[in-house]
Design a protein around this nucleic acid. Structure first.
Length: 359
DNA sequence: CAGTCGTGGCT
DNA sequence: TAGCCAAGACT
C-alpha cells in the first residue's frame, strides 16, 4: 500500500513543528498584519482585527479592508470611539456583519479596560466575537502564549498528517487532540501561522501540492496514497431559492435607504426597503405610486439563494406616495451611492437601478 | 448538535 | 457551471 514510497516509519509528531518552522522561516507569506522585520511582537490590535476579518474570509478579500480600518482607526481606542454607522459602512461587502457589531462591542470593552487587550487565552475568550479559535490565535500570535490554534487549515493539515478519517464536525475532538501533540512550547504563534500558510498554499483542499510539502515525510495520508480525501466532511443540505422584492424610490436625485434591525440577516446595515424576503418588512410594499419592474438580482447567501425583483419608482414626488411617511429612512444622493455602505446584494440592486433609470 | 450568518474565488 | 471552500461565532 506504500504506492508513493513515503515512509510511515518516519511518522514522528515531535519532528513536525521543527520542520514546519524551518519552512516558515523561508517561505512565510508577507501580510500587512504580520510583524515587520525587527519587531519582536505583533500589535495585539492589528492581530485581533485581522483575525476577526479573516474568519471565514480569504486573505485577498481582507487586504483592502484591513488597510482601510487601520487607516481610519489606528488604535483600539480610535475604533471604540467610532460611530456605529461608520464602522458598519466600512465593513460593507466583507460579509458576516455580526462580526462588525461584535468588533465594536469588543473594542469598547477593551477601551473600558484601559485600552489593553487581555494577554491570556481565557481573558480573550471572554470578549465579544472571540471564540475558541480567535482567542487562541491572538494569545499565540500577539502574546507569545502556547495555545492550540485550530482553524479549517489546521483541521485539514492535521487530519492528513494523522490520517484522521472521522467525519467533521464529530472528528474535531480527535483533530484538536492531535494538534495539541504537535504544537510547540516556543513560537506557538509562528507555528499557528505556519500551519495556516501551509494549508493555504500547499496542503490545499482540492489538489494538495505534496511534492512541495515540508511535512511530506511525516504524512500518513500521503503514505496511504490519497491525502486529498481528508478531512471527511458531512454532506451539505441543498440551498433553497427565496424570492423577494426591493424598492428603489427616488426623487430629486436621492434614493430612500433604510437601516436594518441590529440583529439577524444583514443586521445593522444600510439597505434598500424590501418586502420581507429576509423575515422582515419595512412597509415599502404598501406604498402607492407609479412602479415599474427593474430586473432581477440573483445573490447567493450562505443557506439560501435569493432572486430579488427590483421595483422602481423614480419620477413621483414624495408627497404623492401614500404610505411613504410610515418608513423611517434617509434620502441618500444617488451620485454618492458607493459611499452608503450597502451590503453586496443591495449594491448589486443599486447598480441595476441606476442603469435601468437611465435607459 | 444543528441552524444562522456573506461573499468571492477556484475547480 | 454548480458546487465547494475560506484564519468561525453565536444561539
Amino acid at each position: 500500500m506504500q504506492a508513493r514510497g513515503q515512509a510511515t516509519a518516519k511518522f514522528d509528531p515531535q519532528a513536525i513543528a521543527p520542520a514546519l518552522l524551518d519552512w516558515y522561516d523561508a517561505h512565510a507569506r508577507k501580510l500587512p498584519w504580520r510583524r515587520l522585520p525587527g519587531e519582536a511582537r505583533q500589535d495585539p490590535y492589528r492581530v485581533w482585527l485581522s483575525e476577526v476579518m479573516l474568519q471565514q474570509t480569504t486573505v485577498a478579500a481582507v487586504g483592502p479592508y484591513f488597510e482601510k480600518f487601520t487607516r481610519l482607526w489606528p488604535t483600539v481606542g480610535d475604533l471604540a470611539a467610532a460611530d456605529d454607522g461608520d464602522v458598519m459602512a466600512a465593513w460593507a461587502g466583507l460579509g458576516y456583519y455580526a462580526r462588525a457589531r461584535n468588533l465594536l462591542a469588543c473594542a469598547r470593552a477593551v477601551a473600558a479596560m484601559g485600552g489593553t487587550f487581555p494577554d491570556s487565552e481565557d481573558g480573550l475568550r471572554a470578549l465579544p466575537g472571540l471564540g475558541e479559535y480567535t482567542a487562541a490565535a491572538v494569545a499565540a500570535i500577539a502574546f507569545g502564549r502556547r495555545a492550540v490554534v485550530v482553524d479549517a487549515n489546521v483541521e485539514r493539515v492535521i487530519a492528513r498528517l494523522f490520517a484522521i478519517d472521522e467525519p467533521l464536525p464529530a472528528g474535531k475532538a480527535a483533530i484538536r487532540l492531535a494538534a495539541g501533540q504537535v504544537t510547540p512550547e516556543e513560537r506557538a504563534g509562528d507555528f499557528a501561522q505556519a500551519m495556516m500558510d501551509l494549508g493555504a498554499t500547499v496542503c490545499t483542499a482540492r489538489s494538495p501540492r505534496c511534492m512541495l510539502c515540508p511535512l511530506r515525510e511525516h504524512c500518513r495520508a500521503l503514505a496511504e496514497g490519497a491525502p486529498e480525501r481528508l478531512p471527511v466532511k458531512a454532506a451539505r443540505k441543498a440551498k433553497p431559492v427565496r424570492q423577494g422584492r426591493a424598492y428603489w424610490i427616488e426623487r430629486e436625485g436621492r434614493v430612500l435607504l433604510v437601516r436594518r434591525p441590529g440583529r439577524g440577516m444583514l443586521g445593522g446595515m444600510r439597505a434598500l426597503p424590501d418586502d420581507g424576503w429576509s423575515a422582515r418588512g419595512d412597509g415599502a410594499d404598501a406604498i402607492g405610486g407609479e412602479w415599474r419592474g427593474g430586473g432581477v438580482v440573483r445573490h447567493g447567501f450562505t443557506h439560501f439563494d435569493l432572486e430579488l425583483q427590483l421595483m422602481l419608482c423614480v419620477q413621483a414626488e414624495a408627497a404623492s406616495l401614500p404610505g411613504l411617511n410610515d418608513i423611517e429612512g434617509e434620502w441618500w444622493p444617488v451620485d454618492e451611492i458607493e459611499a452608503a455602505g450597502l451590503p453586496t446584494v443591495f449594491a448589486k440592486a443599486a447598480r441595476l437601478a441606476i442603469a435601468e433609470r437611465i435607459g
